[in-house]
Amino acid sequence: PDSPLARWTKSLHSLLGDQDGAYLFRTFLEREKCVDTLDFWFACNGFRQMDLKDTKTLRVAKAIYKRYIENNSIVSKQLKPATKTYIRDSIKKQQIDSIMFDQAQTEIQSVMEENAYQMFLTSDIYLEYV
């Protein structure tokens, strides 16, 4: 079987699916002051698994929107205006859907794959671990 390290270099997805990989990448992002992008990515995954009939789900959708999207945070800056408008309108109309953050998550993931993930694989945090 692949070693964890071999999996980490395979894709961002495999890195984030591994506990040690995800935590090490998080430490790296904290240092780079962009840990919000990763927390947002995990929040989207967590949200997708929530029960739409649970009143908590709307509150979580609002919390995600408030924390990462409506302000001028690093996540918000990396999202397309249309994506943000779509989420804002869904929340306003209280039309909550499991996939309402999927587009935003995909956009954030692409940016992470192109930037942070590549930087991580050459960072001293990663190399020291290896």
Partner: peptide
């Protein structure tokens, strides 16, 4: 009632990979 921050943290933690 949980605060918004708690709900958000709970949501993030639920998606983090667990030790196998």
């Amino acid at each position: 009632i949980d605060s918004e921050d708690d709900l958000l943290q709970e949501c993030i933690s639920s998606a983090m990979p667990k030790k196998k």
